[in-house]
Design a binder for these strands. Sequence first.
DNA 1: ACCTGAACACCGTTCAAGT
DNA 2: ACCTGAACACCGTTCAAGT
Lengths: 198, 198
Amino acid sequence: MTVSKETIVKASIRILDREGVEGLSMRTIAKELGIKASSLYWHFNGKQELYGAISEDLCLRLKMPAESDSPRDYLSEIYNAYRAMLLSVRDSVPVLENSMPNTPRRLEIIRAISAAFLIMGVPAEKLMTISNLFNNYVLSFVADECRFKNRTAEEIREFEKLLSPHDKTLLRVPDDFDGQFLYGLQVMFAGLEAVGSA
Amino acid sequence: MTVSKETIVKASIRILDREGVEGLSMRTIAKELGIKASSLYWHFNGKQELYGAISEDLCLRLKMPAESDSPRDYLSEIYNAYRAMLLSVRDSVPVLENSMPNTPRRLEIIRAISAAFLIMGVPAEKLMTISNLFNNYVLSFVADECRFKNRTAEEIREFEKLLSPHDKTLLRVPDDFDGQFLYGLQVMFAGLEAVGSA
DNA sequence: ACCTGAACACCGTTCAAGT
DNA sequence: ACCTGAACACCGTTCAAGT
């Protein structure tokens, strides 16, 4: 049996889940497939292109919500599905961040989001800024969420040593990530409405 | 003459400005200083710690604004100074992103920002989420800004080939980054006020 | 069409040894 | 106190050669 773009991407995602992005190298991917690293270059032009294919595969798992009367509800559902997808594969965030959204599914998602923001009244010249704002929010939130969840007890102690008692009440990390995520979205949507109607 | 943490950090920033983060390795830093890579480990425990020191140095350049009656104005000034600082050194964003904010200046900035958000009425349990939201906004905005500014003509053509005419009007990249940056801040502040007073 | 072998030019890090 | 030499265990990528 011979490998394909498909099997390479699936093998990459298995490694990602098992060892994280640090463990994802052309050599480990090849080993997972029983071939040599140099063979991968027949299928992909480089690591960047492979990252693009992995990202596309991840985005295909993102269940797009049914159309809705309310663009805000529609967008909320997309971003919740987006976060769920990111949380479902270890270190998906750095992979997404290091690839270009130039594949069909990713363009489809961008189009759907853009259309919804336009309906919400976001002016065309602000569209890019707003969709980047929301997109970066989701990516950064999940990145932070994973960082916090994976802190070792050692790291926590190390960090808390630097904080005054007053700091600690200030910098408390909330544990209801779902609620915090929704709150951030709410703030941004409310801001959009407030500024749009000004 | 012998090197010090100080001179190592300065040399690193020179390399960053000249070659970007891709060109910043323990070996290139050592070469810049006329020593060997292994010597750097006497001064820093590893690359992560060096990144922390570079980030601290960058944050020391950030001119903190004078106290203000309006926490919103105060925060706006901080975030504008933050962006200006990030733009002043090539690839500062990935360095900041890959280091922990556990140094004096960075903690000072976090405290000042937290205090201002509290005065604005952000509830304590949302503080972390909100300050992360704003912090990630600035980092991501500047990262995107630099990506756009450094696109080669080749890359632009390559990407535009994939877009329909309709897409192009949608995904137009605005060129007034200052205005777009302010707009995003405005949206988030407005959202904070709207949600806070709800 | 698909894969290998061998090489190139790099990485971060460790550690005994030097001065 | 500060630095070197040499090694270890890796990277991404290229390309002539194999089947």
